[in-house]
């Protein structure tokens, strides 16, 4: 499998001495080519810093980051990376321009891949006013402008940092359709970071969940959904620890397990030991995300207390 974006033990720190912050802490990501990859994380989890390193806007402190096998930190490889990448940053404001001027400006940077037809299509579908100054545009329209410019580039990789900011539900729906219909149909890769899980769940085929600079989970969304399950059981001698258990919660007359791998096998083990399964249900992406983040937080707190 070839990868559009790969990181290996990537670290990015800011500040010095006691004020040193590890924004990205040993991150290893694999974004397959042709996928829609959703990078999920809470605020300040390191998503934007990772993207900035992928775009050559920040230098890794250690580890490596590769985009189509190229190093985005140094010219001339950086230029070859940027020829193949469309980018929508979190901050979407270019003073003194209108969306039309932005599209015209961006067009000249990608003469080989740019499509005027696609630009018109995105403008029409997102109902973007072309001649209003950026100073007067709403947040949603600024987002639409940046999206239109990036999508019309028809780059091999589209990196979207919080692309849904300010979009109303109809514009959001149109955007998701455009991404699926026009971007992935041509085998392009979409890498988007967000904490809006519902939208990601609709279109992503791969996800990575980040928290405090580290990756907690990564893989195809269907596999992840299949491997997570919540079961409620009663019985004697229920196990407290097991490699498959993500979290355990004691209820009034039963025990709730959240399982993160091979749930069927674990359930079989329980029933063969005399336990009764009262309920077994899959987890939504939102529940998976919350469980993973909480568990990681508790582990960190335990480690901190032990230290």
């Amino acid at each position: 499998m070839s990868y559009a974006l790969q990181t290996d033990s990537l670290v990015k720190t800011y500040g010095l001495g006691s004020k040193r912050i590890r924004a990205v802490d040993g991150l290893s990501l694999n974004v397959p080519e042709g996928s829609i990859y959703g990078l999920l994380g809470r605020n300040s989890s390191g998503k934007t810093t990772t993207i900035r390193m992928a775009m050559g806007l920040a230098q890794p402190t250690s580890g490596s980051i590769r985009v189509f096998g190229l190093n985005p930190s140094r010219d001339p490889e950086r230029v070859r990376v940027l020829e193949q990448v469309g980018y929508v940053p979190e901050d979407k404001m270019l003073a003194g321009l209108t969306p039309r001027k932005l599209l015209e400006l961006n067009r000249s940077f990608y003469p080989g891949t740019w499509s005027d037809d696609l630009a018109r299509k995105v403008v029409r579908r997102l109902e973007l006013p072309l001649d209003t100054s950026f100073m007067k545009l709403s947040l949603g329209n600024k987002t639409k402008s940046a999206l239109a410019a990036a999508i019309a580039q028809r780059s091999r990789l589209l990196i979207l940092d919080e692309p849904t900011t300010g979009l109303d539900p109809i514009a959001l729906d149109e955007l998701l359709r455009l991404l699926v219909e026009d971007c992935t149909a041509e085998g392009r890769t979409i890498f988007l970071s967000t904490h809006q899980l519902a939208e990601i769940e609709q279109i992503a085929d791969h996800i990575g969940i980040m928290d405090r600079g580290r990756i907690l989970l990564e893989g195809p969304l269907d596999d992840i959904r299949a491997s997570f399950r919540r079961i409620i059981v009663t019985g004697a001698a229920l196990p407290a620890t097991h490699p498959g258990i993500l979290s355990t919660k004691r209820l009034a007359h039963a025990t709730q397990y959240v399982l993160q791998q091979e749930p069927e096998r674990f359930t079989q083990e329980l029933t063969s030991n005399g336990a009764t399964v009262l309920e077994s249900c899959p987890l939504s992406l939102n529940e998976i995300f919350i469980e993973l983040c909480r568990t990681a937080e508790e582990e960190d707190e335990d480690e901190g207390a032990a230290a």
């Binding site: 230029v79 940027l82 901050d91 404001m93 940077f109």
Partner: peptide, 16 residues
């Protein structure tokens, strides 16, 4: 600085 840098530094053009 700001979005201007975000824009120009992410276009396929050498920093030099």
């Amino acid at each position: 600085l700001g979005y201007e840098a975000l824009f120009y530094r992410t276009r396929p053009i050498r920093i030099g």
